[in-house]
Structure formats: structure tokens, C-alpha cells
Nucleic acid binder design. Structure first.
Lengths: 188, 188
DNA sequence: CCGCTCATGTAACTGGTTACATGATTTA
DNA sequence: TAAATCATGTAACCAGTTACATGAGCGG
């Protein structure tokens, strides 16, 4: 035993195979490409080698699969793959999975003082508008998923709650910035 | 012009130099090492080469700096570095910065159906406890930052709000899972 | 039949990671 | 002075990225 542990993307791909059954690499990619919050590009350069890796580790098995002239490969979970996937899921769930994920917007807010007041206001205005728009996207995605399983729905709901909080927080930030600008001793 | 654009970590490091003034690589590392939500390891293998990169691009300037027998380098922002940093901050802020950041816990919830009910319950119990603990950490960090600048505080507040939402969401998930378990046709 | 999109891949690069090495400084 | 840890670095590795290549299927 003592196999090298799965990367996050590898865990996800195993999960997709579990969820959707035997799939082509292309089908796997589409899930990532179409996701509303794309944490991975879903590029072929990521997926194809990854599946080969998993096959070498016997977590996945491949089967030739041709549609017409075009030939491809269908991948499915092995028993070992299934249990590796369950182990990846947890428990236990590692610390860093529980903790708050990194957020590039938060770090930018940290440095907002580096901008002249005008740019700062402009940034926040744009950010709030875009965030609001993104929120609608997620709401829609959430609604679309009502037909799916309980946990898919709960995941989507998680994204929704996060995005709502994000918007409220941005409102607070913008408000604070506005107050800041009123005071004479602003700007750096 | 048309310089290659800054990575997220590069932007952060420039920001730290802006915030703290001339710093040694070691000092920069400490910020990442001590951060309560470590999105980067802050390893020397990341920071030293990064600063060299930035120096080659003239965004940063280095100065020999010895304390006693030990010699090191002090890095500071150049004018070009300052404006590159401001440009990185935005506006405009790229889409993916606005959108909800990826969250490994959310993806795990998506696949929760793959676990037997007992493990699922156990996972959620542990996750909620750990999340609650993490929340306290962040609350504390938040309190500690009250003395700092407005935007540092707002960043910390953002983290706090997110973590609170995370905890509430986890409660929902656990509740839904409990209901699920009650119904006879559960488990896969 | 021409061009567009679908589907399957490969290759080069890169921004990080972990692990290791080394000498200075502090502490027991 | 021996052990710990501080501070500075280097080297090998790696999981992703973008960019490119190729042929199938299909709509005009």
C-alpha cells in the first residue's frame, strides 16, 4: 500500500466516473469546461495524462470505444478506484479542506489602500456589479440542479450562500471606502 | 511594454513590499507561513526565485544587507514595480477573481452520496467541529487586526463572514443528510 | 467540397511544491 | 560547546497550463 495520495483533480475525476459511470475523456472535460466556477481549465493536457496515470495505478480501466470511424477510449472505475475515491472523500477530511479557501478578491481588498481613491471607488463599483451578475448565474445553476440528487443540490446551495455573502461583504467594503473618502486625511 | 502579467503570488509579494517597505525574502516568507489561511506554502523555493524574477523585470531592486556575519538581501519596490502592482490590483479585476473561489469541501459534499450513511455522518460531524474551531481562529485573527488599517480589517472581516456562512451551510448539509438517513430508501 | 466544430491527443512550459544543504545565531 | 533554530539558498520534481496537431463528422 502507501500509494501516493490523490490530487484534488484526480479525486474529482474519479468522482465523476463514480457519478456518471464509464465516460470518455471528452465527457469528463466538458464537466469542467461547463462548470460555472471553473477551478480547472479542463484542458485535454490535464485530463488525458491524468486518466493514463490513474490507469497505470489500476484505479481506472479503459476500453476501446468507437463511434463510426472515430475511435476513443471509455474509462471506468475499478474496485480499487472506488475505494481510493471513498478514501479521498474522507473521513478524515484534511485541515486545509475545511478551512476557508484562498480568495484572490480578498487579497486585493487587503491592498486597496494602494490605489488612489478614484480608482478604488471604480474598482469596487465594477466588482459589485460583476459579483451581482455572477450571483445570478449561480442562482440559475442552482435552480437547474433542483432535479438532481440531494448532494448536488447542497453543493450548488453552498456556492449560492458563499456568493451571497461575498456580495454583502463587498457592499460593506464599498461603504467603508466611501466613508474613508469623506474624511480629509485619506489617500496615501 | 506588454509585459507578461503577474501571477497571483507575485502580486501578493509586490503588495507586501508596498505595505511593509523594503524586506528580506525571509520576512516575506513569514507572512505566508503565519497566515491563518495558507494558500501558499511560503517555501523558500517559491520566494527566492520569485524575487529574482521580479528583479530581472526591474519591478524590484535589491540591496546587500548584512546583520552581523550573516549576509542577505533587502528587496524594495521600484517605481515600475509600484505601478505594476497597482495595475495588478485593478481595475479592471478579472472575472475569475470576482467569481466564487474553488472550494474542496464543496466538491466533496457533491460526492457525499458515494459514502455509506455511517461514514457520511461521521465526516459531517468532524467537518462541522473542525470548521467551528477554524472559525474561532479566524475570529481571533480578526480581533488582532483591529489595530491595523481599514482594508486589512475588511479583508479579515471577509474571511470571517465566509467562514460563518461555511459553518451555517455545513449545518444545513448535516441536517439534510440526517433526514436522508431516516428515509428507508437511502444509501447507494 | 469547403469550412466549422467535435473529439482525441501531444509537447513545451511554468509556477509552484518538497526536500535538501549550509552557515550564523541563540540557548541550554 | 553542543543542540536547536534562524536565515539563506539550491535542486529535483510535478500537476497543471497554453498551444499546437490531427482527423472525423457535418452543415452550407
Amino acid at each position: 500500500m502507501a500509494e501516493r495520495k490523490l490530487s484534488e483533480l484526480e479525486g474529482c475525476v474519479l468522482g465523476l466516473l463514480w457519478e456518471k459511470g464509464p465516460s470518455t475523456p471528452y465527457a469528463v472535460r466538458q464537466v469542467f469546461l461547463k462548470s460555472p466556477s471553473p477551478q480547472w481549465s479542463g484542458s485535454s493536457g490535464a485530463i488525458y495524462p491524468l486518466l493514463e496515470r490513474l490507469e497505470r495505478r489500476k484505479l481506472v480501466r479503459s476500453k476501446a470505444h468507437a463511434t463510426g470511424q472515430r475511435q476513443g477510449t471509455l474509462f471506468s472505475l475499478t474496485a480499487a478506484g472506488t475505494s481510493a475515491f471513498r478514501a479521498w472523500l474522507g473521513p478524515p477530511v484534511p485541515e486545509w479542506v475545511i478551512g476557508i479557501p484562498p480568495d484572490p478578491l480578498r487579497t486585493r481588498v487587503n491592498f486597496l489602500g494602494a490605489l488612489p481613491a478614484v480608482k478604488r471607488a471604480k474598482l469596487l463599483r465594477a466588482a459589485r456589479k460583476d459579483a451581482e451578475r455572477h450571483l445570478h448565474l449561480i442562482e440559475e445553476d442552482c435552480r437547474r440542479r433542483q432535479s438532481q440528487g440531494a448532494y448536488e443540490r447542497l453543493m450548488a446551495r453552498g456556492a449560492l450562500l458563499m456568493m451571497q455573502t461575498r456580495c454583502e461583504w463587498l457592499r460593506e467594503v464599498a461603504e467603508a471606502a466611501r466613508e474613508q473618502a469623506m474624511r480629509p486625511s485619506a489617500g496615501r
